[in-house]
Simulated scan of single mutants.
Amino acid sequence: MKRNDLFDFLDIPFTFQKRPVAIPADLRADWRIGILVLILNISCRGSRASIIKLHVMNWAIRSNQGTELFLKLCAGQVSPESIIVRFEPWLNRAIDLALAEGILRRVDGDRVELTPSGTIMAKEILGNKECFAKEKEFLHGLRKSISEERLKKIIETVIYQ
């Protein structure tokens, strides 16, 4: 086929059709960054947390089952051995993107904290009642009740069982 024939062939009417979203919302970087900002702002002292705590909180927030298990764990109704926390590579990518965008900064090696622009982002998300409604309700219910020490013990129990 000659070049002109190809252009003639391609010169036809076309339409766009809406297709399903290829990536589920909870795997999108913008959703994950929003969750990170909320976790740090609502549930972490000094808006600072270890990467492990962020992974555990992310696991808890992703599904109703994870949320329910985490709340039972915090209340002492289930043992750490009865849960399986999933560490998501997507969360690490979201952390890297948030660091690159200046939303987070690294402190003390394995910890991150909100920057002033991250705090502004958190306030904007908190101000929108429709945005992350279920997640905000869960995080406000916990507040800062699960400390890094308690979480570390839970993770050690799960990892070394």
Rank of each mutant, 00 (worst) to 15 (best):
S117M: 11
S117N: 09
G118C: 02
G118F: 00
G118T: 08
G118Q: 00
G118S: 00
T119G: 11
T119W: 03
T119Y: 06
T119Q: 11
I120E: 14
I120V: 15
M121C: 10
M121D: 03
M121Q: 12
M121I: 07
A122H: 01
A122K: 02
K123G: 08
E124N: 14
I125S: 01
I125E: 03
I125M: 05
L126R: 00
L126K: 04
L126N: 10
L126V: 09
G127A: 10
G127Y: 05
G127L: 06
G127N: 09
N128P: 08
N128R: 13
K129E: 12
K129C: 05
K129L: 08
K129A: 12
E130L: 13
E130K: 13
E130Y: 12
E130Q: 13
E130M: 10
E130P: 04
C131N: 12
C131M: 14
C131W: 12
C131E: 13
F132V: 09
F132C: 05
A133H: 09
A133S: 10
A133W: 07
A133D: 11
A133Y: 08
A133E: 15
E135H: 12
E135V: 04
E135D: 14
E135A: 07
K136E: 02
K136S: 02
E137H: 05
E137D: 08
E137Y: 03
F138V: 09
F138I: 08
F138P: 02
L139T: 02
L139D: 01
H140R: 12
H140C: 05
H140Q: 12
G141Y: 02
G141D: 03
G141Q: 01
G141H: 03
L142Y: 01
L142C: 06
R143M: 07
R143G: 15
R143Y: 04
K144T: 12
K144D: 13
K144Q: 11
S145W: 02
S145F: 01
I146M: 06
I146V: 14
I146A: 00
I146W: 00
S147T: 15
S147Q: 06
E148Y: 04
E149L: 06
E149C: 07
E149P: 04
R150E: 13
R150T: 15
R150M: 11
